[in-house]
Simulated scan of single mutants.
Amino acid sequence: MSNNDIFKKLRVALQLRDDEIVAILKLVDFNISKAELGAFFRSEDHPNYKPCGDQILRNFLNGLVIHLRGPRPEKPRSEKKVDK
């Protein structure tokens, strides 16, 4: 199964539109246009088909986590105690 297939299946399963996917990718500072995104969802024999790279899928998954769960909360810094 290719990255394009995984991306398509996630898009359908989560009922995401192109503009929502672009917004999810922006959450991780990854900018992509709707035209570039559409090339990933075309069939392999289409002249404008583009294979989805690992970086794009990884950034989408990281953005999806932020989209669904919210941003990661800051961990409180614990002060180290020094025994005298």
Rank of each mutant, 00 (worst) to 15 (best):
F7A: 04
Y49D: 03
R77P: 11
L27F: 01
L68I: 10
I32N: 03
I56L: 07
R72G: 06
G63S: 00
R11V: 00
E79T: 05
F40Q: 00
V12Y: 10
N4P: 10
R17C: 03
R42S: 15
L64T: 03
K75S: 11
N59R: 08
F40G: 08
R58E: 05
I6R: 06
R58S: 13
A13G: 14
L14G: 03
K84Q: 12
F7C: 04
A13H: 14
F40V: 11
R11P: 08
R11L: 04
V65G: 00
A35M: 11
S2C: 08
S33P: 09
E20Y: 02
D5Q: 06
H67A: 14
H46V: 09
Q55A: 15
A13Q: 15
Y49P: 01
D29H: 12
N31V: 07
L57F: 01
N62W: 07
V82M: 13
E74C: 02
N62R: 09
R17Y: 06
P51M: 05
P76G: 08
I32G: 12
L37D: 08
N4Q: 05
I32S: 06
G53H: 04
K80Q: 13
F30V: 12
G53M: 08
K34C: 00
S2L: 02
F7S: 01
D54I: 09
K9Q: 11
R11S: 07
L68G: 02
P73T: 07
R72V: 11
D19Y: 15
S78F: 01
R72S: 04
P51A: 08
D54G: 06
D45C: 09
P47C: 11
F60Q: 10
K81Q: 12
I6E: 02
A39M: 14
L27G: 07
I6A: 09
R77T: 14
I32K: 03
N3W: 02
L64W: 05
I56Y: 04
L16T: 01
R77K: 15
D19Q: 14
A13L: 10
I66W: 01
N31S: 13
G70C: 03
E74V: 09
M1C: 10
F41D: 09
K80Y: 02
S43W: 03
R17L: 13
L25V: 06
S78G: 04
G53K: 14
E36I: 00
E20R: 06
L27C: 07
D54M: 08
P51S: 11
P71F: 00
I66K: 10
D83W: 07
V22Q: 06
L68Q: 14
P71M: 02
